[in-house]
Nucleic acid binder design. Structure first.
Length: 454
RNA sequence: GCCCCCAUCGUUCAGCGGCCUAGGACGCCUGCCUUUCACGCAGGUAACACGGGUUCAAAUCCCGUUGGGGGUGCCA
């Protein structure tokens, strides 16, 4: 039996990292088993779905390197779902219901579900455009519905807690459970891999699948949720975690993908950062964790830094150039080797090279005092200033001059000069970038700093 | 309220009855390297939620407690 899995996002927002991780695990499993990975857009909710977001989802998936083999949109398959409903209605597996939500609440209170009020009332088929009548699925009130989850083990629900749920809205549009069950059946899905937030929809789908005549439902594997610091499910509003945010900030897709894999799964040999082929080879659904995992940006940053440093210089230059800002290409090429070792994200680059490209930033007060507060700094700057006027303008000579001035005075000179020229106490190596600046500019910056000391 | 799930260092993963005086990674701290920072290297810090069982033996199995989370829509 060949594996068929699907990633089925609803296009109601940008693709976020939780969904991306679900997509990734589906993809990993498909690639590991030489199976088929399907992208199925679940856009049955015509009011909430934003067709333009489908492109964002596809782009994000492609960015992560998750290629799919087949693609479907549920909005194009409504006639299938509705035909199924006709059959249910004929066989008495579903029925029309004209209860308003207020009426139901009035009967059962706040905390109960639907009370099966219309089960045997024979509400007739609504006239076109009626807009009040829904179709509900007749669920058994006794027994249990359960499955052996590949990650969580046996999960069971008492049928008595499964209400007669809606399968067609009053506007005639089919609901998620129905479309989901039908498509999984129709598309021959063998494994359903998705977030834990969907576990309690499984019994309904299982019941539907049975009514559909499915002999064998797919295997289910519910992934632990990805959570924020408050240990709550990552949410679009609270946590701003769409994949596109990360592409914008200069994360490498390979780093993001690799990091996402470590949330809920780990290789037995303890190696976390490794090529995707090795991950595919070692990945297995049965080894996935059950506990929620915190999305730790600091660790993502570390992964990203590792991946940046793995790049060969040319690739680094090409990839990072768009993030570097207004800097001459040739100059950027010369700075790149120093930059590559120091950044964890591409969006850190402009700040790092700012003093070479344009004006140095205003120094931080505390750092300034710490570096420039020493009594010998004025003497050092004076001597450096004097010697810099005539020195050959190339890195080695600059280093000799600046460092030599310090030695001549029995002190350290690199930090004060760095602070004067770059406005920071840390950053790129000093002399190579400094040689890129005009002599007059460097002298001017040091004079200005010297002036502040009086 | 009701239903479902979860529980190893601050975080993340390893551990699936003895190899555990619990391991890797991130973070943090220390040292080395060094023109600063970073990189790299070498160390260090820090956890089996609690209580009962089962067993010769439990982080690993069972039950309970506590604590978290998810769901409870004519969203998915």
């Amino acid at each position: 039996m060949t594996v068929r899995v699907r990633f089925s996002p609803a296009p109601t927002g940008f693709l976020h990292v939780g969904s991306a991780r679900s997509a990734l695990f589906n993809w990993l499993y498909a690639r590991k088993t030489s199976g088929t990975f399907i992208l199925r857009i679940e856009d049955t909710d015509v009011d909430r779905s934003r067709p333009e977001l489908i492109e964002n989802i596809r782009d994000s998936l492609r960015w992560l390197g998750l290629d799919w083999d087949e693609e479907y949109r549920q909005s194009e398959r409504f006639d299938h779902y509705l035909a199924v409903v006709e059959g249910f209605l004929e066989r008495g597996q579903a029925y029309y219901c004209d209860c308003s939500q207020d009426q139901v609440r009035a009967r059962v209170g706040e905390n109960a579900g639907y009370d099966s009020h219309c089960r045997d009332r024979n509400v007739s088929k609504p006239a076109d455009g009626d807009g009040r009548v829904v179709v509900r699925f007749r669920t058994p009130h006794e027994g249990v519905t359960g499955w052996d989850d590949l990650i969580r083990g046996r999960v069971e629900f008492e049928n008595s807690v499964i209400e007669d749920f809606v399968i067609v809205r009053s506007n005639g549009v089919p609901m998620f459970h129905l479309a989901n069950a039908y498509d999984d059946f129709d598309m021959g899905i063998t494994h359903v891999i998705r977030g834990e937030d969907l576990v309690n929809t499984v019994p309904r789908v299982l019941l539907l699948l049975d009514a559909l005549g499915a002999i064998e439902p797919p295997h289910y594997a519910h992934l632990p949720l990805i959570v924020n610091e408050q240990r709550k499910k990552l949410s679009k509003r609270r946590d701003d975690v769409s994949v596109s945010d990360y592409t914008d900030r200069g994360y490498l897709p390979e780093a993001m993908r690799n990091y996402l894999v470590t949330l809920g799964w780990g290789a037995k040999d303890d190696i976390e950062i490794r090529p995707i082929d090795e991950i595919i080879e070692r990945f297995d659904l049965a080894d996935i964790n059950r506990a929620p995992a915190f999305f730790d940006i600091r660790k993502l940053d570390h992964f990203n830094g590792e991946y940046i440093r793995m790049l060969d210089l040319e690739a680094f230059i090409d990839e990072s150039r768009p993030f570097a800002g207004p800097v001459d290409d040739k100059l950027y090429r010369r700075l790149a080797p120093f930059v590559q070792e120091r950044v964890r994200r591409y969006d850190e680059i402009p700040a790092l090279i700012a003093w070479v490209v344009g004006e140095p930033p205003e120094p931080d007060e505390k750092d300034w005092r710490k570096v420039m507060g020493r009594d010998d700094v004025p003497k050092v700057l004076d001597l450096v200033l004097e010697r810099l006027v005539t020195v050959a303008w190339e890195p080695e000579a600059l280093a000799d001059t600046v460092l030599g001035a310090g030695e001549a005075l029995g002190t350290k000179s690199q930090l004060p000069v760095r602070m004067a020229v770059t406005g920071r106490r840390s950053g790129l190596p000093l002399f190579e970038p400094m040689a890129e600046l005009d002599r007059s500019i460097v002298l001017e910056r040091i004079r200005k700093a010297r002036g502040r000391l009086d």
